[in-house]
Design a protein around this nucleic acid. Structure first.
Length: 443
RNA sequence: GCCCUGGUGGUGUAGCCCGGCCUAGCAUCAGCGGCUGUCGCCCGCUGGACGCGGGUUCAAAUCCCGCCCAGGGCGCCA
């Protein structure tokens, strides 16, 4: 046994009942008075107070407690009692006390300190300490609940969860740059999306698949909403009539999560001091052509036959909120020629300059992209050429469409962007444990 | 990739525009002492910093040049 206090008897602070308890965690604060010491103990579930009274505990323990550095790890066996003086309502009278791991001083970052807020960059350098902050922890508890709800949502609708390769031989589509990787002397790439594989599974007859996994984008973006590695919520479904069927699923998914997360994580929203968002079904679906008019009527000049730019999307969101009363909306029917629309989207039957593609924009931020895919081999191959690619480079992909593939569509949503909107974060880096951006690959 | 802003104790900032009054202020933090119950404890004392390199000047945290780092905007994207 490494410790004299039996850690197997330990309970989380939030679960502790009155009576004898074993608790362990971080020393958040020690307030030393002449004859009494108050120690604030924190674990993943919350905080409590341990009261050491001179005379009631051995003198050597009292001395030790007076000088214990903040953020050390300690264990205590004691009696949890109700207390009318303690603001937390209860406190622990120690019987046995033990330091399990002493923290060095001073701490490299300040946290839990209302008068000093350490900058994000420094916090990320010492993320392992930063994550001790209950406010930071709350973000990841909420994110965990979001992915839990996603699994619930997809499984209840008969989706099969899949895991597609992240090391790929051929650069995907979409224009986003890929990271090259040395693979036993061959040049391969990190997957920038599971797109081709989830479509393959439509050809394989899986009908409905979803994947929540990492994707990699070698774009040197320097913004509060881009990452080089992020988690994509992808799904693909067969036998759709139109891309509206895909949007229906996206809408159900987002509304399902948004309207449940507040109840599941009420404590975490409280810690963050954030009001959980609400979202009603019936999100407006507005064509890009209508959007041009919408933003233009508000004094913003769009470039026709191109996607809305960042500011255009913000103006669009504001206009939608004012005119439709929704903070989120689908932007639909994209210009086919636009660089952001890949060759595999299905073009509008009667107007081939426009594609059955959509974005979900929530309060100015694009959180989802999706659409109906072109499943007819000859047309797909021609579109590939028309977009300027050599079909031979997409040989394995085009093969899927030769031997029978149902009409299908799907979408991809950024988990971190979704998290950002749900907990109202300014910077996407706050929504990842260890963000990867063009400069940062450590820790 | 282009553009803008910024780098001052462990952390967060003031000072820079208008060079000298900076022996660099404040808060937090850390150390010591005091305090019959704290709860953002309080009080006193002590400690610690001008990103790196070069230049201008009698004098540089302050002005100029280069580099490095950080943050933001744009394009682009989830």
């Amino acid at each position: 046994m490494v410790s004299k206090i039996d850690l197997r008897k330990r309970v989380r602070i939030a679960d502790a009942q009155y009576g004898e308890v074993v608790l362990a965690g971080f020393v958040q604060d020690v307030r030393v008075l002449k004859n009494v010491v108050f120690m604030i103990l924190r674990d993943v579930s919350g905080i409590t107070q341990i009261v050491f009274k001179k005379g009631s505990v051995p003198d050597d323990v009292f001395e030790e407690v007076c000088s214990i550095p903040r953020e050390s790890i300690v264990a205590v066996r004691g009696i949890m009692i109700e207390s009318s003086i303690a603001k937390l309502g209860r406190e622990v009278i120690p019987i046995e006390f033990e330091v399990l791991s002493e923290a060095s001083q001073p701490l490299p970052i300040e946290f839990l300190n209302p008068s000093v807020e350490t900058g994000l960059s420094r916090r990320l350098d010492y993320r392992f300490i930063d994550l001790r902050n209950p406010r930071v922890l709350a973000i990841f508890k909420i994110q965990s609940a979001i992915t839990g709800l996603l699994h619930e949502f997809f499984r209840s609708r008969g989706f099969i969860e899949v895991h597609t390769p992240k090391i790929v031989a051929e650069a995907t589509e979409s224009g986003a740059s890929v990271f090259p990787v040395d693979y036993f002397g061959r040049k391969v790439f990190l997957a920038q999306s599971p797109q081709f594989y989830k479509q393959m599974l439509m050809a394989s007859g899986f009908e409905k698949v979803y994947e929540i996994g990492p994707v990699f984008r070698a774009e040197p973006h320097h913004t509060p909403r881009h990452l080089c590695e992020y988690t994509s919520i992808d799904f693909e479904v067969s036998y759709i009539e139109s891309y509206h069927d895909v949007m229906d699923i996206v809408e159900d998914m987002v509304v399902y999560i948004v309207n449940r997360i507040g109840d599941i994580c009420s404590r975490e929203f409280e810690i963050l001091n954030v009001k959980p968002p609400r979202m009603d079904k019936g999100l407006p679906r507005i064509t890009v052509r209508e959007a041009y008019r919408l933003v233009e009527s508000r004094g913003y000049k769009p470039t026709y036959m191109e996607d809305l730019d960042t500011r255009g999307e913000r103006v669009f969101s504001k206009a939608v909120e004012e005119e439709y009363g929704y903070k989120a909306a689908f932007l639909i029917e994209f210009p086919w020629r636009s660089g952001s629309r890949p060759f595999y989207v299905m073009r509008k039957l009667d107007e081939p300059d426009w594609a059955y593609s959509f974005d979900l924009i929530w309060d100015g931020l694009e959180i989802t992209t999706g659409g109906q895919r072109e499943h007819r081999y000859d047309i797909l191959r021609n579109q590939c050429i028309e977009k300027g690619y050599n079909p031979d480079n997409f040989g394995f992909y085009l093969e899927f469409f030769k031997y029978g593939v149902p009409p299908h569509g799907g979408s991809g949503t950024g988990l971190e962007r979704l998290t950002m909107k749900i907990v109202d974060l300014e910077n996407i880096r706050e929504a990842v444990l260890l963000p990867r951006d063009p400069e940062r690959v450590k820790p």
